[in-house]
């Protein structure tokens, strides 16, 4: 009788200590769901979802404050992927937040640019290079095509450039069965 009490209480003590240590050591900070949602979002950072970027939107979805169909760049595929992750019914893309545009970047008409730096401040991914009163240029590889710089330009020198297929990005077709 006494033996079993000793054995079990020491066992409980040891296991409790291990569990307690593990709880501190492997503590999950933040919400892992936010990361998972953020991984699905296209990272355009365009703000069309009414949140200031993809991560805030992911946060809002995780908190149940936003619907999964507010991301036009992600398209219907993105909404479906979110629905699958969250285990909810998928929703058709909400048109209030804009339409899905084809993949594009922006370019600056360098002859017209006055160097006002407004686009530099608007860009969510720092894809602009320039300074006050000098010509500004876009790092095309870094541009996400969020179009946030277009409305702020006072001289309308930022234009959309669609990404053209090249022999290097070509995906061969298959003669289907």
């Amino acid at each position: 009788m006494f033996d079993s009490i000793v054995i079990f209480s020491s066992l409980a003590l040891v296991l409790g200590l291990i569990l307690g240590y593990a709880a501190i050591k492997f503590k999950v900070t933040g919400n892992p769901l936010v990361d998972q949602i953020d991984a699905i979002l296209p990272q355009t950072q365009c703000g069309q979802c009414d949140f200031p970027g993809c991560r805030p939107y992911a946060q809002a979805i995780a908190n149940g404050e936003a619907q999964i169909n507010q991301c036009p760049p992600g398209g219907q595929e993105g909404a479906d992927a979110l629905a699958e992750l969250l285990g909810v019914e998928t929703l058709p893309l909400n048109e209030e937040h804009g339409e899905t545009k084809i993949e594009h970047v922006v370019i600056v008409d360098e002859a017209v640019c006055i160097g006002c730096t407004l686009c530099i401040q608007a860009c969510p991914v720092d894809a602009f290079v320039g300074a006050s009163k000098v010509m500004t240029s876009v790092i095309e590889d870094e541009c996400t095509g969020c179009d946030l710089c277009i409305p702020v330009c006072p001289v309308d020198c930022i234009h959309i450039k669609e990404i053209q297929p090249t022999p290097r990005t070509y995906i061969p077709k298959v003669t289907h069965v």
Partner: peptide, 30 residues
């Protein structure tokens, strides 16, 4: 044909994913 299609598709996916990761990193840094 299926294999060259899948290879090209995979290349496109990885390149897209890289671009997304860079955008996320740059946004967070900003």
């Amino acid at each position: 044909q299926y294999f060259s299609f899948a290879k090209a598709l995979h290349r496109q996916k990885t390149q897209g994913q890289q671009k997304v990761d860079i955008a996320r990193e740059r946004f967070e840094f900003r």
